[in-house]
């Protein structure tokens, strides 16, 4: 029996395309966020509130990833921003090459902030780099305060945590301090925002963070 040494990353192909995407974003001065969460945490609602707040000040484009339908892209298109829908047809996450294909439908020179809304799933998207500057994970209060402990990889790889649906806290057995503690146990450097898409609490602070980071040209 002879051994052939390989020593290569299984996802190197995705990583390479992600690297190319990242280069392209840097060349065009685009700040890119990859939004991840479990289904129903409120990614699209947060995006809608974000577009309401920022569309007149920042040039924003959106890539929507869903298993089926273009419902989310249609929700976003109401805000008159360029939106591309990727339908994965069963695929549980977006991959870098799908994002690269979607970029073909966008005018990169006219974008300052690109929001990629990933497929609702807290497991698989954590493995696939898309070329984004930061991963933003949304955890909603209805999911319970132990979510970060159950899905550590996603919280570990994210830079920002949005704790959403905080208006519902009075009705839920979810403890906000515990949820935050659990997330920071996994990733002490997380930037945390508390948001509600109904009361709009916290949306301004989140949008200011986005503004600041979109206007600061990324180091390539």
């Amino acid at each position: 029996m002879s051994v052939i040494t390989i020593e290569r990353k299984v996802l190197e192909k995705n990583d390479e395309v992600a690297r190319q995407n990242r280069e392209l974003f840097a060349d065009h001065g685009i700040f890119v966020i990859n939004m991840v969460s479990s289904p129903g945490a409120g990614k699209t609602s947060i995006l809608e509130r974000t577009l309401e707040t920022l569309r007149d000040t920042l040039k924003i484009a959106v890539i929507e990833g869903d298993v089926q339908t273009d419902l989310d892209a249609r929700r976003v298109a109401k805000y008159n921003v360029p939106a591309v829908q990727i339908v994965t047809r069963g695929g549980c996450h977006l991959e870098a090459n799908l994002v690269r294909e979607a970029l073909g439908s966008l005018k990169l020179d006219t974008i300052e902030l690109l929001v990629i809304e990933n497929v609702g799933n807290l497991v698989c998207p954590s493995n696939y780099d898309l070329g984004e500057a930061v991963k933003v994970v949304v955890a909603s209060t209805t999911e319970g305060d132990d979510k970060p402990l159950k899905y550590p990889a996603m919280f570990r790889n994210a830079s920002v945590l949005l704790i959403n649906k905080i208006d519902l806290l009075p009705y839920l057995p979810c403890d906000l301090a515990t949820l935050k503690d659990n997330a920071l146990k996994i990733n002490p450097s997380l930037t945390v925002f508390e948001t509600s898409c109904t009361s709009k609490q916290g949306i301004n602070a989140w949008c200011e963070w986005l503004m600041e980071n979109s206007r600061r040209k990324p180091a390539s």
Partner: peptide, 9 residues
């Protein structure tokens, strides 16, 4: 998450 090697007969 790596492919380390293969054993060939």
């Amino acid at each position: 998450l790596q492919v380390v090697s293969i054993d060939v007969d």
